[in-house]
Design a protein around this nucleic acid. Structure first.
Lengths: 161, 161
DNA sequence: TATTGTTATACTCTATAACTATA
DNA sequence: TATAGTTATAGAGTATAACAATA
């Protein structure tokens, strides 16, 4: 099943390595693919002090104003302790507001402030364009197929207990 | 393009969050998917002190006896400094041999020793079975399509300079 | 001078546990 | 007693830089 994967070695035209069963291992391939995605992101947005996770948080708040901090952490698979630190940093930068609702004063509802909304609205097309560029080795149809498969995987595969 | 991704929030049947453009972002989806893959791997192989990267190294040496350490590091996207530590640990456990070739005494050729080969041969079917189980939310055809897409992505997307 | 591997170290991301306050 | 968030800290994984040996 499947051709043995051949990966370029040290030189672009160097010896090619047969990885055997690894070539069919979804987890292994996902690790390499995500490595590529992160490297491309950092290269594209370097010097702007924006990490992929930070953009995801801001974009998610943009689409879900008033989302509870813990719910956001669960959806994006970020530990609540780490989310607290990130949100605090956003608040210090004037990007995000956290409002304690009257009906449950333990929670925090997150919303974007003006500068935060402006930032996300400016970044959104850039991020989308970068994504297309970073995966330009796939055709549009292939990229669509890939995201559809990943979405199905993620939707049922990441439980939030 | 594409339906807005809906991700289960805190409760399995809790409020569903619209992630907007993130739902089409390949990098974001890859991160979540890889998170799932790692969690599943650690759960399946817990108590056996085997990390995904370690298995990948052993399996790669299995298929490419005599592979140079630096080449292996490049293919698996592991820094040579970290590879050195990992190989040393394998040697201490009697799993791997490192031979300095006469024609270039800087290099190290890696091979599996008996116990290392036995370990990989025992693990290989287990790892394959685990991979199927961990991604059982996809059909066999979908999983094949996913690995094919990832392979194309990785093959051209991860340059080893 | 460049390459291979090694060592030591720093850094980032993530994980864990203890705490406060609210429910 | 359970939940939401916070804080501090520990750990894993990865990255960087200096070095020795060899080419």
């Amino acid at each position: 099943m499947g051709d043995p994967m051949q990966v370029p070695a040290a030189a672009p035209d160097g010896p090619r390595i047969n990885l055997g069963g690894l070539a069919d291992n979804t987890g292994f391939l996902l690790r390499l693919a995500q490595l590529h995605a992160f490297e491309a992101f950092f290269k594209a947005f370097e010097g702007r002090s924006l990490r992929p996770g930070e953009y995801a948080v801001l974009a998610a708040i943009r689409r879900n104003p008033g989302i509870r901090q813990g719910v956001l952490a669960g959806v994006l698979r970020i530990k609540r302790s780490n989310m607290a630190k990130m949100v605090r940093a956003f608040q210090d930068r004037g990007l995000v507001s956290g409002r304690v609702p009257d009906d449950d004063r333990r929670g925090v509802e997150l919303r974007l402030l003006g500068p935060g909304r402006a930032l996300v609205d400016r970044l959104e097309p850039e991020v989308a364009a970068h994504d297309r560029a970073a995966f330009a080795m796939l055709t549009g149809a292939e990229r669509a197929a890939l995201t559809a498969l990943l979405r199905k995987l993620v939707d049922t595969g990441t439980e939030t207990p």
